[in-house]
Every structure is written in C-alpha cells, then in structure tokens.
C-alpha cells in the first residue's frame, strides 16, 4: 500500500514536469501549426539560467540582503526574461522564416536550434577544471567516455529548509497554479482568447481583426516563461540539471502533447500524466522494467497516433465547409 501510494506521488510529480513542457508544445503548435521541437531545451535553458543567475547573485551577496522569497522571485524573473527572449528568437529565426513552407522545415530548424541551445549550455557550463583529470583519478576510463560536460547541481530554491513532502507539495502547487492561471488567461483575456482563435482558425482570426503576428509573438513569450518555470521545477525535482536533459524532456513533452491532441492544452495535461503514470508503474512493478519504461511509454504514444490521432480528449470536430 505504501509502495502504491509512493509510486502515485512519483507519477504525479513526474507528470507535472512533463505537463508543463507538453503545454509549451501545445501553445506553439496551436498558434503556428508547427512542432517547435526545442521546447524541452528552452525549459532546460531556463533551469540553467536560474542556476547561473543564482551563482552570480549569490556571490554578489544578494541573498544576505534580500528576503529569500524575493531573491527567488528575482531569479525566476531573470529566467523568464531569458526564456521569453529565447522563445522570441526561436520564433524569429527558426519558425517565421519557414511560415509558408512545408511543416517539416520548422520542425528541422527547431531541432537544429535545440542542438545549438544544448551544446552552448554544455560549453558555457563546462567545469573550469579538466574533468577528465578527475575521471582518471577515479581509475576509470569509463568516466572519460562520458565526456567532459558534467551535470550541474541545482540550487535548492524550493523549500530550502523544508521536508521532501513540502517540496513535492510546492511543485504540485506551482504546477496547479500555473495551469489555473493559464486557463484563466486563455479564457478570460483578449490575448488568451485570440490565441485560442488563432489555433482554431488562423485566416478567420486575421479576418476578424486579430493582430495575428503580435499574438503569435506573445505566445512565444508566454510559452518561454512557462517553460522557464517548468525547467525550474524539473531541475528542483531532479536536484541536478544536465545540458542534454532538454532532449529527453522535449521528446516526452512532445509525446504527451501528441497523446493529448497537440493543440489541446487540456489534452497535454492528461497526456503528461498518462505518460508519467505508464513510465512509473512499468518501472515500479515490472521486474527490470526500468529499461523498458520509456519504450512502453512510447508504444502508448504510437498507439494514440494510430488509433486516436485526434488525441485523448480531442473532439472530432470536422467542420465541413
């Protein structure tokens, strides 16, 4: 019973991290009809920018001057601005130039951009000390094979003095808060409604007077901020961040979004949770299941693509015109 409960908590927490990345995919797909594949890398970029800003601000002594929560807020703000800018850059250089080409082009260009983000993170956050020397000291060549770019410890910013349960509650709480805020934003504000309108019918949206370009840009900004916070939660939950984590989160987030119906953000939530539950339970209950958990999770995704391409809660609204 304790095992079951523990695994459910694990799945929910993992699901929270997948969900936020999946929503990023859904937002971008909604307004641009393209898969922005570097969403995962943007999220990890957010985590790294928080870590980097923390290192700089901490050495400047800001944490002794400001209350902790204010300092964390500043860090989140810095990361949000950086991620929003990265979102803009993604749009400007990887999506917009291919607006009138096949959907494959922005897909490829964002994959390429993701590689660039990842490699730049790997280079910038490289150890000053030659890590290979350390690998040698450990007597194992295996370490050297792993490469010089090491994972970075994520500063403990969520519940620094609290228990693990408190931290987990905060992660779930922040995710719920973001989802609620997003829900209200999408349904109660003009910008949010415009985003929905564009995702449903871009030409019509333009016709009824929505400044589509502006909304698309705003979507990339908002998506960037969301991914920044997502990356922060991912890093805090895992306690470390690796420069190449973006690939994994990107793939899982994309898979979750597909399960959910790609342009449907509520579907992304369900998809993220479903993927996390499948993974955790395969890993937790099948002997030596961990090696297969990702495989089985992706089999589920393929199943959805084949049998329910409109997504788990996507409606079949085929509008005949």
């Amino acid at each position: 019973m304790e095992l079951l409960f523990g695994q459910i908590i694990n799945a929910i927490l993992l699901g929270c991290t997948y969900t936020l990345v999946a929503i990023g995919f859904s937002l971008f797909f909604g307004v641009m009809d393209v898969v922005v594949f570097c969403a995962g890398d943007i999220a990890i970029f957010g985590a790294f920018s928080i870590m980097g800003a923390y290192t700089i601000l901490a050495s400047a002594g800001i944490f002794s001057v400001l209350p902790f929560t204010v300092a964390v807020f500043i860090l989140l703000l810095v990361a949000s601005i950086l991620c929003a800018s990265l979102g803009l850059l993604t749009y400007r250089f990887s999506v917009k130039p291919f607006e009138n080409t096949s959907a494959l082009m922005p897909l490829l260009s964002t994959i390429a951009l993701g590689v660039v983000i990842k490699e730049v993170l790997g280079l910038v956050f490289q150890r000053v000390v030659n890590p290979l020397a350390k690998a040698a000291a450990s007597g194992g060549e295996a370490l050297a094979v792993q490469g010089g770019r090491n994972p970075q410890a994520m500063p403990v910013l969520i519940a620094p003095d609290g228990t693990i349960t408190e931290r987990n509650l905060i992660i779930i709480g922040v995710t719920l808060f973001l989802l609620l805020a997003l829900f209200l934003f999408l349904n109660k504000t003009k910008i949010g409604l415009s985003m929905q309108a564009i995702s449903q019918n871009k030409d019509l949206s333009r016709m009824i007077g929505i400044n589509v370009n502006r909304i698309v840009i705003l979507t990339f900004v908002i998506g960037g901020v969301l991914l920044a916070i997502g990356g922060f939660l991912v890093g805090s939950y895992n306690t470390i961040i690796r420069f190449d984590n973006g690939t994994m989160y990107g793939t899982k987030g994309f898979a979750a979004a597909v399960v959910g119906g790609l342009s449907n953000i509520y579907g992304a939530i369900v998809g993220g949770m479903l993927l996390a539950f499948v993974e955790v339970f395969v890993s937790g209950y099948i002997p030596n299941g961990t090696a297969y958990s990702s495989i089985i999770a992706f089999v589920v995704v393929v199943f959805f693509i084949v049998f329910k391409p409109e997504g788990i809660i996507g409606e079949k609204t085929v509008e005949k015109v």
Partner: peptide, 15 residues
C-alpha cells in the same frame, strides 16, 4: 472561412 469551431456561438460573436 468557417468559424471558431471549438468556441460557443456566443464566444464567436464576442470575438
């Protein structure tokens, strides 16, 4: 050009 098919009629009008 169709409608905003996932939105209600009222929302379409408001948009």
């Amino acid at each position: 050009f169709g409608t905003l098919h996932k939105m209600t009629v009222e929302k379409n009008l408001k948009m």
